[in-house]
Design a protein around this nucleic acid. Sequence first.
DNA 1: CAAGGGTCTGTAAACGCTTACATGTCGGAC
DNA 2: GTCCGACATGTAAGCGTTTACAGACCCTTG
Lengths: 375, 375
Amino acid sequence: MVTLYDVAQRAGVSIATVSRVLHGHARVRQDTRDRVLAAVEDLGYVPDGAAQSLARSRKDVIGLVCVEHSGLDLRQYDSEAMSRLFYDGVLRGVEERLREDSWSLLLTFLRDDEELVAARLLALSGKVDGLLIGEGVVPPAVMARLAKRLPVVAVAGDPSLRGVDVVSADNWSGAQAVAEHLIDVHGARRLFHVDGPASAPDAVMRRAALDVVVAARPGAAVTGRYEGRFSFHSGEEAAAVLLERPGDLPDAVLCANDQTAIGLMRVLQAAGVRIPADVAVTGFDDIFPASLYDPPLTTVHQPIRELGQRSCDRLIARISGPAPRRRIELLPVELVLRGSCGCPPGTSERREVARRKPGAVPPAPRPPPVRAASR
Amino acid sequence: MVTLYDVAQRAGVSIATVSRVLHGHARVRQDTRDRVLAAVEDLGYVPDGAAQSLARSRKDVIGLVCVEHSGLDLRQYDSEAMSRLFYDGVLRGVEERLREDSWSLLLTFLRDDEELVAARLLALSGKVDGLLIGEGVVPPAVMARLAKRLPVVAVAGDPSLRGVDVVSADNWSGAQAVAEHLIDVHGARRLFHVDGPASAPDAVMRRAALDVVVAARPGAAVTGRYEGRFSFHSGEEAAAVLLERPGDLPDAVLCANDQTAIGLMRVLQAAGVRIPADVAVTGFDDIFPASLYDPPLTTVHQPIRELGQRSCDRLIARISGPAPRRRIELLPVELVLRGSCGCPPGTSERREVARRKPGAVPPAPRPPPVRAASR
DNA sequence: CAAGGGTCTGTAAACGCTTACATGTCGGAC
DNA sequence: GTCCGACATGTAAGCGTTTACAGACCCTTG
């Protein structure tokens, strides 16, 4: 391995000078500089990251931890699982920010049932300057311990998390908007809800909003609920539940996300149910296939990439500056109307959704999910 | 920041002892051990990664570099761009391997037009023990320089790359299988090819195989070719080209990947072209939406996740052991027959594709892409 | 009872870099 | 000719670990 000493020796200078040339922190005579650069080039010298980090006591690395829900089957590689698309978006956002400065990104996937969550996160915390933690559930105690050691930002996390910044999409307002649209515009009364995992803050928010909207509208009711796992399969399962009482379909099915909605629609359609004529269906997230499906899926567009960017901005601010006040940031979402909710075919309208006041995030009421009867 | 010294002091021992307790490399008396562990717990000590790396001269980090094709428009965030799905798959595969040992993953995205490619890669090489470089094009000189410094594996890379290991799917055989299927089974004669970027080794392989198959079959011919960018949009553009001569459609369109195929089918269908009745269409990769489309897309399944795993295995082997012989590894693909090629609706058959001998990878013939006339 | 051999623990030298401080050199002003 | 201040460069002290080696202690054994 080529070190500073090798370069210094070859250029006939001291290691300090080499370092100075490499960083331009101080002036070095032109011919010395040239000699050093030539030596660097000749030897193919690249500074050792570990040594630099140690000397600067700054690693220039941030960690992105993708916490995935344990409900998902490990074996079955859900190429469509929510988390993949979600984290991919976040990743891009983060990367964009990072490349501007010269940070690096350390990536880790974690299942939230992993016994080792705490251990792995702690170990990770020794390798980075700050942590971005996604979605899933990390025990609050672990969070607190981490937050004491270094800056932590929860991406799409539970806003009630203590001690860490939270950046999230405005799930509440999004869910509210869909529910209102279905009830007020399309006259839906009997709603079925395909929920996400109870461990997902996003899902919890969406459910809470739905319940509030329904409660405020006499005549409307959530007539059934199925706890899914944000996946295509969950949607299929939920559809099977609905088809057990084919004469008794709800007016609308609100799905926890697009994958779920698509899975559901496929099974329903295969059974002869017409969408939206017989049942309206909505998703959440606005992933790529949503607009491709027949009928195109009405959904809520989440600014996932931006989520990554903002989280990253905040983390870097915390790392480099004196700690700003702890903050919860809520990004606005859009209601995307397409055909599956009953809007005329060909409709494709994006509507800004009024933004919920960040401060007003409620510690969402959490009734235990009413599992649909059988299975 | 809590250091070894703090722990040592609190436990009333030397730092060496603390280190020993933490790693179990040597025996320590039980009560000493307990005292140390208690101190660690109390102080919330976590070893500093940089210092460990320096002392062990091993970083336990590998870098995954996702090189993306510059053809893609930066602004337009192709949520469906090939590279996203591809790298997402690779990432998962890599992650699975890494978590078994306690390696970490440093992730970088790079556009292959970036002037700074060399600089960024070099800098990166100081922070990791080995590098996994994806798909896109890194100047051979840079590759060589990197490979001299540390182990490098090219994922889905150009098999003619010197000095680095290459792990790739058997694109040649896959493309061969689709082409043969279309011509021999469905009697297609006039083929249109929507190609991928010329800078993508995968695309080059697929084209070469197609050309060889066609050349061997009198009567069959590639009647047109459009150089796309592996994206949904590319497919739409290619479709527009085809629709300029609506009376003169080819028998089949072979697309560089699934996104392209889906984009193409949408536009053709919107113009009243029936698939597969009027034109057969095939994709490549077998991404999630492929089976969902109407008609379901005939395609070639790539073991992307496995690609990540194998690459990673190889890299780790190189890092930890004495360098094994340089090697090219080709992973088998599957032909997935669905409706879009003309197989009866409802068909869904996966066929193993005979595996090409790894050694036999040809320095693919590279005729300059024949761009379709207009635009 | 001294010597020999285990155990356990401490000392100190790396690891490769950054950077405060010291040193040296040179030109000009007096 | 001496002195001063720039400027260029070298010296050495960290940064927080790991680990080879040395030392201390305690038991056996002859």
